[in-house]
Design a protein around this nucleic acid. Structure first.
Lengths: 156, 156
DNA sequence: TTGGTTGCAAAATGTTTGCATGACC
DNA sequence: GGTCATGCAAACATTTTGCAACCAA
């Protein structure tokens, strides 16, 4: 099971996401590939691990991962989030439709939710703090996923 | 009543919040007092600083603050949150009506919002992930407060 | 060629833990 | 006296930074 990705259509997707403002290096492309194929936000450590497993010959430094995640964030293609359930940051690609996640408190799986609350509460915010200029928001839902509820004997 | 500690309605409030399950010590009462009089969530460092300033004679260790915040959290009287804009945790008293905050990206002031989005999106969650058992949620709104917008020359 | 990028190691930050001392029932 | 909380320091995990070597434009 070679996890290195060769599909050319995939490379096109990478090209689409890769910011023109920064230089294209092997490490940066690989980090973006990992984020691109991830189904949920990943921590720097998880990205580092995936990079390490994907190709034994290549080397990646932890600091490179951090530095480039920051570079991608500045360039506007990556979003950094700190979930309250975990004490480290997670990173994901900034796609057209932004997502919120339901986080399982047991297995830490992050399940995307379609709904976005900002539309619903925009009026309330305007009313509470009329002069506040909203630039972004974050919502997390906590609980237990199906699998963990079954394992735990589904109380309630 | 005539002891060196002035009995007041404030102390009664502390009593109300102080969990029966844990022993009442000077440090714990003081930490709870700080949280009780705070208008916004505080970091462990901020609590530590306030404790240090409040009484020169008394000593508090950083670890005591952390340990007791954890104890309060376990006892259910304090909520720990990690905001995405900051890299440290903040703590607040768990009051009857839970709050969400609008966080200023410039001065980091946390302004409470009345609205809670969970009611609005509960249906969407049930639809997206029907078997997920929701136990909690967190919402943050980011942006710029009135004061900072004025200082920055309010572009847009 | 040359400035930006990397890997490495060391530092910085926020938080937790081990242990002896100390407070309280 | 025994239990539990504290203060201190040291450990820890995550993230950041300094610097020489390296690589892509």
């Amino acid at each position: 099971m070679n996890s290195k990705i060769h599909a050319s259509s995939f490379d096109e997707v990478i090209d689409k996401f890769f910011p023109e403002s920064i230089k294209k290096t092997r490490q940066r492309v690989d980090i973006l590939k990992v984020l691109c194929s991830a189904s949920q936000p990943l921590s720097a450590a998880e990205i580092f691990d995936i990079l390490g497993k994907s190709d034994e010959k290549e080397k990646y430094a932890f600091s490179t991962v951090y530095r480039n995640l920051l570079a991608f964030e500045k360039a506007g293609v990556v979003i950094k989030t700190v979930l309250s359930t975990e004490d480290n940051a997670v990173y994901e690609l900034k796609r057209e439709t932004h997502k919120h996640y339901a986080v399982c408190l047991n297995c830490h799986t992050k399940i995307p939710i379609k709904a976005c609350p900002l539309h619903d509460i925009a009026g309330d915010i305007k009313e509470s703090i009329p002069d506040f200029q909203v630039t972004g928001h974050q919502l997390e839902i906590y609980g237990y996923c199906t699998k963990c509820r079954q394992l735990m004997g589904q109380n309630s």
